[in-house]
Simulated assay, not measured.
Amino acid sequence: MLNLRAIHHVAIICSDYDASRAFYTNVLGFTVVAEHFRAERQSYKLDLALNGQYCIELFSFPDPPARVSRPEARGLRHLAFEVDDLDAATEWLRQNSVTFEPIRVDEYTGKRFTFFSDPDHLPLEFYER
């Protein structure tokens, strides 16, 4: 049997490297582990950590094709982040001019959550612990 230990990272390709770098570090609070410019590919690779845990590779490529993400397109549906206080988290989004959907309640767990988007409209979620 395969013995998976954890999800190691999520790779995201962005269209505007500076905007996405600022969003994931300044708005969502990820820390930079490493940043590399790969001249042969005209591409950045930014390794990001959350609470000391490496978890996102942010890539830039010249003219990446758009990917359908809504409504309910096949593939990765969204990336969810656990928060302690959804009201504080959404207030932080509001202060940083990030729009989010009305807060909903998970019908199975009773937990509150909301969706918002990164600069490339990748669907993201805050899910209250």
Rank of each mutant, 00 (worst) to 15 (best):
N3E: 15
N3T: 12
N3G: 04
R5F: 09
R5G: 09
A6I: 00
A6W: 04
I7Y: 10
I7M: 13
I7S: 03
H8C: 09
H9A: 11
H9W: 06
V10K: 08
A11N: 09
A11C: 10
C14G: 11
C14H: 01
D16R: 09
D16V: 04
Y17F: 15
D18L: 13
A19Q: 14
S20Y: 00
R21S: 01
R21G: 00
F23I: 06
F23G: 01
N26S: 15
V27Q: 05
L28W: 05
F30K: 04
F30H: 10
F30G: 11
A34W: 09
E35W: 01
R38N: 14
A39F: 08
A39H: 15
E40F: 15
E40N: 14
R41G: 06
S43M: 09
L46M: 07
L48A: 02
L48W: 03
L48Y: 00
A49S: 12
A49C: 05
L50S: 12
N51W: 06
G52F: 07
Y54V: 02
I56R: 09
I56V: 15
E57L: 14
L58C: 02
F59K: 00
S60W: 02
S60M: 01
F61S: 06
F61M: 12
D63F: 10
D63G: 05
P64M: 02
P65F: 08
A66C: 02
V68I: 11
S69N: 10
R70C: 07
P71L: 12
E72W: 11
A73N: 06
R74V: 14
G75P: 07
G75C: 05
G75T: 00
L76I: 14
L79P: 01
A80M: 06
E82Q: 14
E82K: 15
V83K: 01
D84M: 07
D84H: 10
L86M: 11
L86H: 11
D87L: 08
A88G: 09
A89P: 01
E91Q: 12
E91D: 13
W92Q: 14
W92A: 14
R94M: 08
S97T: 10
F100Q: 06
P102M: 02
P102E: 11
R104N: 10
D106L: 06
D106I: 09
E107K: 11
Y108G: 07
T109L: 14
T109G: 01
T109Q: 10
G110N: 07
G110S: 04
G110A: 07
K111Y: 08
F113P: 00
T114I: 06
T114C: 15
T114V: 10
F115I: 04
F115K: 00
F116Y: 10
F116Q: 04
S117W: 08
S117G: 13
D118M: 01
D118N: 04
D118F: 02
D118K: 08
